[in-house]
Write a protein that binds this DNA or RNA. Structure first.
Lengths: 210, 210
DNA sequence: GTTTTCATGTAACCCGTTACATGATTCA
DNA sequence: TGAATCATGTAACGGGTTACATGAAAAC
């Protein structure tokens, strides 16, 4: 149980945790938050919502009584809301930090909800991804060294671009990890020693201007 | 007909065009050439080979004719080789330049075989991908402008990293396109005006040292 | 009053994955 | 001799896409 991964499922629960929404809006938020990483269509979303409803993790509510239009509340929209069980389940998902959370599929979504994730789990995921990417860099380097002559310029160019992309992400992760460590140290200092580890919501990013 | 996309199929045909191989080696080449972009397992590869064989696009050959091969021994089980039909079909696939060739899935493989692709098709694919990415940049920018306040630092950082990644690929594409144009112009000049357009194998990349 | 966007679905399909299973060869 | 790698498969499943279908509200 609880082993059905489903990037979409996590994303839906995570977004609904912020606030209740209806399907259409959910999908937009989904594709804007996750941006380049994944794009879901209605064909995936609505069945997923049905499923989550059936499992009691979310509820379907007919549209809210419109304050501007008191009479004859239009019920066309269906607003989905996390149940208590849903919150619990989400928290359980966010507590996991296996390979699924740092592979290409999955990492983006997990990262997007780092704000709801325990600091130690965040760290494990970041480090997991980094070492995953480092493996990949290694493989790339090996491939470049191996094929050096036989391969045409296009393949070569593709591999170089790939390598640089991965290296870039590694640097990004390094910054993030350093940032997390810094924030950890700071909050430890501030709180004397009585700090509790499970604190949520703390964000220790470089914080350049938006 | 010929509408079954299949990244894997194209990759297999493309690799077998270079030289015949057996499955295991094919898979390694696959994952080294395509590197970060995709990773196939045997569970996909062998059924695909079966299918291609059934369609007469490749042939299965049992081990090499001469058993006396002590040095450089590569005694393998089943060697797959492109048939004439297979070559034709590959060429047909490489002639197409629809969305499938510039979406995330597909572009990498198409690019890897640009050496076998007509110059005009290459250009259409590069430009197609660029405009696809530019749409995405636009979407990102809009998202960043829209959510500016409501979103936590992690989501923001994710979006920024995503945006930068895409912008980086756009720059890469710009270089490639410029390079192709340059090469086009050069070969036109060299050949007077009698140049034929369908020339293959010309590669006009920046050509820094390997 | 017509087009666009919002909004909700469904059914079929597809490409590939996961997990499993097996044996042959090479290397320590 | 035993472990690692090479080498070839298969069955079941799965998460998501595509294409289709529908209708209400908003914008023009």
């Amino acid at each position: 149980m609880s082993q059905r991964a489903g990037v979409l499922e996590l994303a839906v629960l995570g977004l609904l945790h912020e606030n209740p929404m209806h399907g259409y809006e959910l999908r937009k938020r989904l594709n804007s938050v996750l941006g380049a990483f994944r794009a879901f269509g209605y064909g995936s979303l609505y069945p997923c919502l049905k499923d989550l409803t059936a499992r009691g993790l979310i509820t379907e509510e007919s549209g809210p009584p419109d304050p501007a239009k008191p009479l004859a509340g239009r019920r066309s929209k269906i607003v989905y809301r996390l149940t208590a069980d849903g919150k619990e389940y989400l928290q359980e998902l966010l507590g996991q930090s296996g390979p699924a959370s740092w592979e290409d599929d999955g990492f983006g979504v997990r990262f997007a909800f780092f704000g709801l994730t325990r600091a130690d789990v965040r760290m494990r995921i970041l480090e997991g991804r980094r070492s995953r990417l480092e493996e990949r860099v290694e493989a790339f380097r090996a491939a470049l060294a191996r094929t050096r002559e036989r391969v045409d310029s296009y393949t070569l160019e593709l591999q170089k671009h790939g390598l640089e992309s991965v290296e870039r992400e590694v640097r990004w992760l390094n910054e993030l990890i350093a940032s997390e460590r810094r924030a950890d140290a700071e909050s430890a200092a501030e709180l004397g020693d009585a700090r509790e580890d499970g604190a949520q919501g703390r964000v220790g990013l470089p914080r350049r201007e938006i």
